[in-house]
Design a protein around this nucleic acid. Structure first.
Lengths: 218, 218
DNA sequence: TAGATTGTTAATCGATTAACAATC
DNA sequence: TAGATTGTTAATCGATTAACAATC
């Protein structure tokens, strides 16, 4: 029952901004916070233009109120609806190394409707340990876990070498989307969603700014 | 000794694309890989327009060769130079939880000139353990470690609650840039660089696409 | 040479911002 | 009411793409 955003596909950058609004509003108090917020307040916090905030919110069907601003709850609800946070997504974490276990245990995902139902690892030492409320399972169980929990999303946090092979296995097992934290590109058939999370990308900006910052004249 | 990019500040999106070129070329073989590459090859892999690749490379002063393409080594060298990967950056990891230790141990940073020289945590159980080749230190040592190693960059991976306070301490101790993995905004004085790495942002795109993917008609 | 590929100008496209009327 | 804030059109700006001449 989407509001008014049928048809057009929302742009990547818009989705990101919506997520920033969402997390700002959450941080600001959510249910208990102020009941309304103006586009200017949001814009100021996120260092952007208030017109753009209004445009974005209009794009997902939220209407503001002159002199009052936007009702926080309406904004939050609309973003959740548009981003699909209302249908609880079950996910498995494949590869329970340091990063994988950090992701499995990350509590912020629940606010976005993401629930890690299982973690798997091929290291016998990790198997059987408790992570995110469940027991770490051997890789052999991959297919059965996916089937049993009807999982559509996999968080891939294995080393580079086995990444592609495991991705293939995930796809064969019916996984519909892969959130890839392995620092390598993986190839999947058309129709399967992949998002490559490239942590070092952030370093490009940091290193560049560090190099060019005024106080840098050694 | 930058090539020809004096004056203008490179845009965020350009920096990101440079990083993507860099990691593609690295993945493709670096030193041992093919000696040249065409803008069309890069563009195809990254799903973009080849003109944009040429524009980007021209912007950082790399010249291609008609009929031949770009010399891989020249491109790599120019990106390293522009992004500041040639001056080795020392970093500390503050908060050696799962995410922090994953970051401290991540081997991909070295290719970008980033070296983690120490990790700190206030958990006595973690103190003294080995991480990234060094001993995890108590938080009391923060200032002395920064001074001793002349560290300018801090990777912040502590819980939300103490994040701001620790950030303040980092700034007072002379840290010039903070790479913030705590899921909360932190405030720093002008002149200090902060990059907030917001992992859940990626989820916005994934959840949205999962919701709107064609095969989703349950 | 012919042809592949670059480099660059001009055209297009889309996103952001400015301006301001509408609203409560 | 007066004034704060939205909603929306028009203007601007910048980024991407198309076209094509230059080059080896």
């Amino acid at each position: 029952m989407s509001r008014k955003n049928q048809g057009q596909t929302l742009k990547h950058v818009l989705l990101e901004r919506l997520m920033h609004y969402y997390s700002y509003l959450g941080q600001r108090g959510g249910e208990q916070g102020p009941e309304t917020i103006s586009s200017a307040q949001i814009a100021k916090f996120l260092n952007m233009d208030d017109t753009l905030v209004r445009k974005d919110l209009a794009a997902i069907g939220v209407r503001g109120h002159p002199r009052v601003g936007f009702r926080t709850q309406e904004v939050v609800a609309a973003i959740r609806e548009v981003l699909g946070f209302n249908e609880a997504h079950k996910a498995i974490v494949v590869g329970a190394g340091r990063l994988g276990s950090a992701l499995a245990a990350y509590s912020g995902f629940a606010k976005c409707g993401l629930f890690v139902v299982a973690a798997l690892d091929n290291d016998p030492l990790k198997q059987g340990t408790i992570l995110a409320g469940t027991v770490v399972q051997p890789m052999e169980n991959l297919e059965s876990v996916i089937r049993r929990h009807n999982v559509r999303l996999a968080i891939l946090s294995v080393p580079v070498e086995p990444a592609q092979e495991i991705a293939d296995r995930l796809v064969r097992a019916g996984i519909r989307a892969i959130w890839n934290f392995a620092p390598t590109a993986i190839v999947v058939p058309e129709g399967v969603i992949v998002r490559h999370e490239h942590i070092a990308v952030g370093l490009a900006e940091l290193a560049y700014r560090l190099k060019h910052s005024p106080a840098d004249n050694v």
